[in-house]
């Protein structure tokens, strides 16, 4: 091999490596939470590298936008958000990230609330005396696994816009995800059948989509209004009503302060069910489907 042949071989090898790298370059997906991150992984497969801006055990209402989030979003191809004003904090990050692709209306922007049938959409005049109310309705729609399918479709839409060449793969994965949810939904419904119609006290109205999907009845909430802590009077009334009506379950998220629920549990004998609402809120909850397995398991006391 002469010197020129060796050079050409090296150049060709380098070009080949570059092409190979380019063909496997992953689409960078940034999501506002870990549920959407897992759904994005399901739809994008090996073609995407997904990262969530928040931790699984964060309260989605209380996130401080931080410069490190800007760094992530600046390099993203797709940005996936919950919408419905739950993640308004992300707008400050979007504004600073200098990435037009993921801005509202950009190719890589996906607001997963499109297509959702929102619950508890307030009617008439809204004012702060109603608590931290969301004008577009209750934003915790991902706790109905059926809405996970709608979110998955929104994510697939963004991936197809950014990477149209692999449309068929994303569509196929979307169909597969829908089938997985359909199968799991039957399983969860069957397991929760003994609790159907049971009265459940919630901490915050986070669980409304879940209770409606699985036929549980939201009896009342520990918070008298969204985001407002309970007064002693409210707790006393709630405890008296629970005793009278024999309410046996108090359901709340892993990140909530336990003291109010503990008192209710002590005085009424109700079972306290602490369950995650997001993937990675507990170390072994690693997928969106696994999240519902965990919630259902906790409700059944297993």
């Amino acid at each position: 091999m002469n010197r020129w042949t060796a050079h050409y071989s090296l150049v060709l090898a380098a070009a080949g490596m570059l092409l190979t790298t380019a063909s496997f370059a992953q689409i960078k997906v940034i999501t506002v939470d870990t549920n959407l991150a897992d759904i994005a992984r399901q739809i994008g497969g090996a073609r995407v590298a997904v990262e969530s801006l928040t931790r699984g055990n964060d309260d989605p209402h209380h996130i401080d936008p931080r410069p490190s989030m800007v760094v992530k979003l600046a390099r993203a191809d797709v940005f996936v958000r919950m919408g419905m004003d739950l993640d308004m904090w992300a707008d400050a990050v979007l504004e600073r990230c200098g990435n037009r692709k993921v801005q509202r209306g950009g190719k890589g922007y996906a607001d997963c609330s499109g297509g959702i049938k929102p619950l508890e959409v307030p009617k008439g005049q809204l004012d702060p005396s109603l608590g931290d109310i969301h004008a577009f309705g209750n934003p915790h729609y991902l706790l109905d696994p059926a809405n996970g399918v709608i979110a998955a479709a929104a994510i697939a839409g963004a991936l197809i816009r950014v990477d149209p060449a692999n449309r068929a793969e994303y569509e196929s994965r979307l169909a597969g995800f829908r089938q997985q949810i359909a199968t799991a939904l039957k399983r969860w419904r069957e397991r929760l059948r003994p609790l159907q119609g049971a009265n459940v006290v919630l901490y915050h109205r986070t669980w409304v989509y879940f209770t409606q999907r699985f036929g549980l009845r939201e009896y009342d909430a520990i918070e008298p209004k969204p985001g407002v802590p309970p007064s002693p009077g409210h707790l006393q009334t709630l405890i008296a009503r629970m005793k009278k009506d024999g309410v046996r379950i108090v359901l709340f998220e892993t990140f909530r302060d336990r003291r109010y629920a503990d008192r209710i549990g002590r005085e009424t004998g109700a079972r306290l069910v602490v369950a995650p609402i997001a993937v990675e809120a507990e170390p072994d909850v690693t997928s969106y489907i696994g999240l519902f397995d965990r919630i259902v398991g906790r409700l059944l006391g297993s």
Binding site: D111, F136, I160, R178
Partner: peptide, 13 residues
């Protein structure tokens, strides 16, 4: 699983 046609869609209300 209908894929939205535009990135503008969001919940109305």
């Amino acid at each position: 699983a209908e894929i939205p046609a535009t990135p503008f869609e969001r919940a109305s209300g």
